[in-house]
Each structure stands twice: as C-alpha cells, then as structure tokens.
Design a protein around this nucleic acid. Structure first.
Lengths: 183, 183
DNA sequence: CAAAACATGTAATGAGTTACATGATTTC
DNA sequence: GAAATCATGTAACTCATTACATGTTTTG
C-alpha cells in the first residue's frame, strides 16, 4: 500500500504561509519544482477534503458581493497528521520515466544525425533547468535567510543541482563519445 | 498534447528479440529499469491494440489443447511508426516526483534524529540502486558485446550511474552538513 | 483600458496500478 | 511433488491532467 503524498504536500505547504489554493500552486511550481508538481484539479478537491477531515480550517472572505476568497490554516490535527507522515519510513526510491533516454535506448533505429540532435537538445534543456535552480537558490537565500526552513529547502535544491549537473556532464561526454565512435 | 510513450516503449522492445508480453515485462524491469516501468495491465491491452492497428503481428502457438502462447513481431508499418516517433523532438525534461525530498523539504517539523534516519535510509537505497546498475552493465557487456544496440544501452545506463552517484555524494555531504550544523 | 495576474472550481478523460483469476512448465 | 518461473488476461480503482467555466484585482 502506498500513501497518497499529494495530501501531505499540501499540508506541508500550508506551514509555509501559503493560505490559498492559488498560492499553494505557485509555491510548488517554484520552490518545490525540482521534486514535486501539482494541478488545480488536485489542489481544490484536496483542500476541501482536508477541511472535511478536520486537518485544515477555512475562513471565507466573502467580500460584500460575489467573490469567495478562502484562507486555509492547518489545525492541530493537521499538524499531527503532517508529523505522523514525516515519521513514516519510505521503502524504495521513486522510479522516474524519461522519454529522452527511452529514445536514446532505441536510437540504433534512427539516423546518427537525429541521435546527435536528441543529445544536444537534451543538453540544452538540462542547462536551462540548472539555471532555473540557481535562480530558486538565490530567491531562498535572499527571502528566507533566517527562516528555519531555509536549510532544508537548500538541501533539496542542492540535490537538484548536483544530479542535474551530473546529467549535463554526461550529455557532454556522451555527445563526444558518440561523435568519436565509428570514425 | 503529449504522446503516449508506453506504446512506443513496447514497439521498441519488440525490436530486441522479446516476443511475448511476459518477456517484454522482464526486459523493461531489467534493462530499461533506470528510466522506464510498465505493468501487465498496460502490456497486454497495448499489445492487442498494436495488432489492431497493424503495427505488430501475432502468431498463436495453440499447443494441442488449452494454452495460448503468443509470439509478437513488428510489422513494416510498426517499424515505420517507431522511426517516426524516434524522429519527433521532445520539448521539456520530465518532472519526477520524489517523496524523500518532499519529506526533507518539510523536515523542520520533525526531530533531527528522524531527519538523519531519512537521509541515511535514502543513502542506503541509492547505493543499492547503483549496485544494480553495475550488475545490468555487466550483463549488457557480456551478453550483447557485438550487439549494435549495446552502445546506446550503455549510454542510458551511464546516465543512471552518474546521476545516482551524484545523489549518493549529495546524501553523504548532506548528512555531514546536517550533523555539523547547530553544534 | 487592456493585459497580466489573482482566484476558484468541476467534469471528462487518460494513464497506470492492483487485485483477481487461471493455468503450464521447469527446476530442485 | 512442491516451488518457482513462465504465461495471459480483465476489472476496478486511483491518481493526475486537461479543458472548461467564471470572475476580480492589479499594474503598466
């Protein structure tokens, strides 16, 4: 049985000062971007469920007329649930799927020029990912310097940077090896 | 619009000598393990669809009595479909979700000892993944030495090894930094 | 005043996992 | 002869994406 981590991702983000579905989405798309993703189709129903389960409370700022602006807060029960989830051990490392590698794996069935294109293109994409990580790092260092969270956030970011850097080096070496080969 | 790569993964594996749903599963669980995964619930329906679309042919070895043993082969149309898919460019690098990093990100809300446990545990898991890659590499080098595929297979494996190695180093450094901090 | 950003939600669809169901063949 | 491996498949379910639908507030 695998736990549904989405619920806990939202629970966690609610500890960081995000109070609306919209800002939760923003936070995950920026600061958690290198290891998590989410859509509004998950956020709003989950938020409703959290309130139903008593893990979060909501205050509706029904401003005079029509618009609902909702502010979510973790309840004590919600904090407990977060802590309990954190303490749960994980068994195995997540398996990612990578279509670039899938194509490379079968690239014998393709022109060498296309394979080279694939590798170069991948290299370029990795570089922009790396640049993005640097930008997030700057943001954390300037906006959350004294934040108790900062250390942990930088740890996860460092993970992203290092593995991406290794991938960049791999792509460069692989392009070189591929050109070298059969010459 | 995103293409469904599962279909092409199977199309590709059919070029490697795998002829049954069972052996496709085996192949993906071993040699493509570091960047792809699949379940029988995907394989058998997809195989049927490939035949319907004329991308694969099937010969049923109905051995005298009951058991159906099926042998799948790529058709010319199937090969074309594979080549066309290979030539299609990819736009962005795949986003993986990582629950370990998700927990680490929120670890301020947890005892330091638990966080250390998480990191050590992750480190250990990464090491066994790395060991597994080495085993796959040995297998490819010994069983597919002269294989035209071998070069590409080793490229993708090298990717897995390098990024995993970077993650292992990260976990070691992070454990060190975490112990160091606030002392 | 237009565009961008803020803000919330649902329904349909797609993708994938898991449990269930069954049976043959090989190996120890 | 028991256990492991080979072998095929479906149905229910879970999870997540996408498209749709709507409206406000801020900024240039």
């Amino acid at each position: 049985m695998t736990t549904n981590h989405t619920k806990f991702a939202i629970l966690g983000v609610l500890t960081t000062g995000c109070r609306s579905g919209y800002s939760i989405k923003q936070m995950i798309d920026t600061s958690l971007n290198h290891f998590w993703k989410i859509s509004y189709g998950q956020i709003y129903p989950t938020l409703k469920k959290l309130v139903d389960e008593g893990l979060a409370s909501v205050q509706e700022h029904a401003q005079e007329d029509k618009p609902d602006k909702k502010e979510y807060h973790l309840t004590d029960k919600g904090k407990e649930a977060l802590h309990a989830w954190l303490a749960e051990p994980l068994e195995s490392i997540p398996k990612e799927k990578n279509e670039w590698l899938l194509k490379l794996f079968f690239s014998r069935h393709q022109d060498r020029s296309n394979t080279l294109e694939l590798l170069k293109n991948y290299h370029q994409n990795l570089q922009s990912v790396y640049t993005n990580y640097q930008a997030i790092e700057e943001m954390i260092r300037s906006n959350h310097q004294d934040d108790e969270d900062a250390m942990y956030w930088l740890f996860t970011l460092d993970y992203g940077k290092r593995t991406t850097y290794a991938a960049i080096e791999w792509s460069e070496d692989t392009i070189r090896a591929f050109k070298e080969e059969k010459r």
